[in-house]
C-alpha cells in the first residue's frame, strides 16, 4: 500500500545504489556467494572435519577427538594380494573399490569417445533439416531421467533379460556376458553418459572448418593423417571436456552398479552409500572415503584444466 511518491523514492534509491559499482557487485555476486559458502564450502569443510573424528557405535554421535584412523583404515588391513613381479601389495576393500571405479570409468569413457566421435562428426556435416531430426533423437534420451535409462538396461540384461531371451529364442542360448555384473555396469554407464560426450564433441566439431579438411584430402593426405593432424588437435578441448563429463560421474556412479551389479560390483559410490546410510552407518568413515574421492577428482581436474579452459567445455 505504499504511496506513489514512496515508490519513487525507493526506485531512486535503488537506481543510485545500482549505479554504484560496489553495491551492484554485492547485489549480483553476493547471493550466489552466500549459497556457495553455506551449501558447498561449509559442508565440504565439515566433511573434512568429520573425517578426522570418530563416531559413537551406539548413538551415532560424533566424537570430536582428532584421529587419522579413518584414513588409515582405508589403506591398511586389506586382504587381496596383487603381485607385480617381486612386488606384492595387499589391497583393502576401499582400494579395490577405487581401482574398480576408475577402471570401469576409464572403459566407459573410451567407449563413449569411440562411439560418439563418428556420430558427432556426421552430425556436424548434416544439413539443417536432417540435423534437427538427429539432434532431437539425441537430446531426447539425454533429457530422459537417468533412472529410467539405467532401468531400461536392467530389463535388457540378466540371465532372463531381453538380450538373453532373444538369444535363447534363436538358439544361441543365454550368454554369461549378458548377465548382471561388470559388463552390464559398463554398458549402463556408457549409455547414460554417451549424450554428454556426444554433445561436447559436437560443439567442438561444429566450429570446425570442413573446407580445411577437404583441402588437406585434395592435397593427398590420408584419412589417418587428416584425423591425426587436423581433426584431433582442433577438437581436443571437446575430447578432454567430454571425457571429463563421462569419467567423473562414472567414478562416483551409484544407481547403475546398484541396479545392474547384482550385489557383486562394489564401486566407490556404493561403498560410500553403505557407510553413510547403510548397514554399517558411520559418518566418519563415510566422510574419509568421500574425501579421498574428492581429492582424486580435484587432482584429475587440475591436470585437465592445465590443458583446456573451462569455457571451451560447452554449455552442458
Amino acid at each position: 500500500m505504499a504511496a506513489p511518491d514512496r515508490d519513487e523514492t525507493l526506485r531512486a534509491a535503488l537506481v543510485s545504489g545500482l549505479s554504484r559499482r560496489r553495491t551492484s557487485l554485492g547485489v549480483t555476486a553476493g547471493p550466489g556467494a552466500i549459497w556457495i559458502v553455506l551449501l558447498l564450502i561449509a559442508p565440504l569443510a565439515f566433511m573434512t572435519a568429520v573425517s578426522f573424528a570418530s563416531i559413537d557405535n551406539v548413538t551415532f554421535n560424533i566424537i570430536w577427538e582428532p584421529t587419522v584412523n579413518n584414513y588409515r583404515d582405508l589403506v591398511v588391513g586389506g586382504t587381496t594380494e596383487y603381485s607385480l613381479g617381486p612386488l606384492v601389495y595387499t589391497a583393502t576393500a576401499f582400494e579395490k573399490a577405487v581401482l574398480l571405479s576408475y577402471s570401469i570409468a576409464t572403459v566407459a569413457t573410451v567407449l563413449c569417445l569411440t562411439f560418439a566421435f563418428p556420430l558427432a562428426y556426421v552430425m556436424a556435416r548434416l544439413d539443417d533439416r536432417a540435423f534437427k531430426i538427429v539432434i532431437y533423437l539425441v537430446l531426447l534420451p539425454f533429457f530422459t531421467m537417468y533412472l529410467v535409462r539405467a532401468y531400461s538396461w536392467r530389463l535388457m540384461f540378466g540371465q532372463s533379460g531381453v538380450l538373453n531371451q532373444v538369444l535363447g529364442a534363436v538358439g544361441i542360448g543365454p550368454i554369461g556376458a549378458f548377465e548382471f555384473g561388470i559388463p552390464a555396469v559398463i554398458v549402463g554407464l556408457t549409455h547414460a553418459y554417451f549424450p554428454y560426450m556426444l554433445i561436447t564433441l559436437y560443439a567442438s566439431l561444429d566450429g570446425l572448418d570442413f573446407s580445411l579438411i577437404e583441402a588437406a584430402r585434395d592435397l593427398g593426405a590420408s584419412r589417418v593423417d587428416v584425423i591425426r593432424d587436423h581433426i584431433i588437435p582442433l577438437t581436443l578441448p571437446g575430447i578432454v571436456g567430454g571425457s571429463l563429463f563421462v569419467f567423473v560421474p562414472s567414478v562416483g556412479a551409484f544407481i547403475t552398479p546398484q541396479i545392474l551389479g547384482q550385489g557383486k560390483v562394489q564401486m566407490i559410490g556404493i561403498l560410500i552409500e553403505q557407510r553413510a546410510i547403510g548397514e554399517a552407518t558411520n559418518a566418519a568413515t563415510a566422510s574419509a572415503a568421500s574425501m579421498a574421492v574428492v581429492v582424486s577428482i580435484v587432482v584429475a581436474m587440475f591436470l585437465v584444466f592445465r590443458y583446456v579452459d573451462l569455457d571451451e567445455l560447452g554449455g552442458v
Binding site: 559442508p43 565440504l44 565439515f46 566433511m47 567423473v248 560421474p249 567414478v251 562416483g252 556412479a253 551409484f254 566407490i268 559410490g269 560410500i272 552409500e273 553413510a276 563415510a286 566422510s287 568421500s290 574421492v293 574428492v294 577428482i297
Partner: peptide, 9 residues
C-alpha cells in the same frame, strides 16, 4: 561433484 558425495556431505 559426484552426486553421492554432494548428497552425503
Amino acid at each position: 561433484v559426484p552426486g553421492v558425495i554432494l548428497g552425503v556431505g
